[in-house]
């Protein structure tokens, strides 16, 4: 299972790419494999505020709807509208074109509290 070294991770299987004050967020390769074919993504609204570990988006596979959580506190500044037409991007490119939203972080240091790649690999076994 692909777990890029340059990302941070949550226990609920989101990944975070720090881009200065911003955090780009998606779900991991492990998560997309568990969810199976993604058929719908409910994106957050730009401008919405998020608490760390607060529910912010929904990813639906054929079988079930799964909540997506904000890894850190912040404000949504960008969402991946391409997922509305092609939700399967989450399956085909979870760490790239399958990103879900970008948060402007209240305190960028919060990222350090997330798991690194080694800790996330240990979590998913």
């Amino acid at each position: 299972m692909n777990v890029p070294d340059d990302l941070h991770y949550t226990e609920s299987h989101e990944w975070v790419r720090q881009e200065g004050e911003n955090a780009r967020v998606g779900i991991t390769d492990h998560a997309q494999a568990e969810l199976t074919d993604v058929v719908f993504v409910e994106l957050p609204k730009v401008g919405a505020t998020a608490e760390a570990r607060g529910q912010i988006a929904v990813v639906e596979s054929v079988k079930a709807a799964s909540d997506i959580y904000a890894p850190v506190k912040g404000t949504v500044v960008e969402v991946n509208n391409a997922l509305e037409g092609n939700p399967a991007l989450i399956n085909t490119d979870p760490f790239g074109e399958g990103w879900i939203f970008v948060l402007k972080m209240d305190s960028p240091d919060e990222v350090k509290q997330l798991k690194d790649a080694a800790a996330y690999r240990a979590l998913i076994g």
Partner: peptide, 13 residues
């Protein structure tokens, strides 16, 4: 009854 969603959106459950 059987039904179909009329617009793109989340699937019914």
């Amino acid at each position: 009854v059987a039904f179909r969603m009329k617009s793109k959106g989340p699937p019914p459950r």
